[in-house]
């Protein structure tokens, strides 16, 4: 199954495709931020084609395509600052085999306005992308 389809429908596509999936939340990160998180998780796992695919989505949705290009090019540790930098760093920490989000990353998120709903969304987005990597195939024509 294509990864894109799981984003559209939520991860349990077969039985719940008509319901609201975790990727369609009233609260939480916006579409571009989620795509950036997906870019980080894919890149850190070595799935560069998938990372490029998410980078295109993120660059189109966010106000800062240069930041996305830089993240795709250099990976983590990221030179990005502000909210995007805080989210990218936290996504990388959560995507490790043993998640290692610490007080510093959490303070950085908080000082950049990331609230509890967005933190849960960040965790869910990392979880969704990580869980799809073993079956993920980027749709290059998207």
């Amino acid at each position: 199954m294509m990864f894109d389809a799981s984003i559209e429908r939520g991860i349990f596509h077969a039985s719940v495709h008509a319901r609201q999936g975790l990727f369609r939340r009233a609260r939480g990160l916006d579409e571009g931020e989620r795509a950036m998180v997906a870019l980080v998780v894919s890149r850190e796992a070595g799935h560069m084609d998938l990372a490029r695919h998410h980078a295109r989505t993120a660059a189109a949705a966010l106000r800062d395509p240069f930041a996305i290009a830089l993240l795709l090019e250099e990976g983590l540790p990221s030179p990005l600052t502000g909210r995007l930098g805080a989210l990218a760093t936290a996504a990388g920490a959560l995507a490790r085999k043993h998640p290692s989000l610490g007080r510093f990353e959490l303070k950085r998120l908080a000082s950049n306005g990331v609230d509890a709903d967005e933190l849960v969304d960040l965790v869910a987005t990392v979880a969704e992308v990580s869980s799809s990597l073993h079956v993920a195939a980027p749709r290059l024509d998207a």
């Binding site: 909210r83 303070k107 998120l109 908080a110 965790v123």
Partner: peptide, 26 residues
């Protein structure tokens, strides 16, 4: 990933000030 990630957040938040309201800052 959900369980481990949220557990990690819970542990890290124990000694951190409450999260700010949504908004952009640099």
């Amino acid at each position: 990933r959900m369980i481990a990630g949220l557990r990690q957040c819970a542990l890290a938040r124990r000694n951190v000030v409450p999260l700010a309201r949504k908004g952009y800052s640099h």
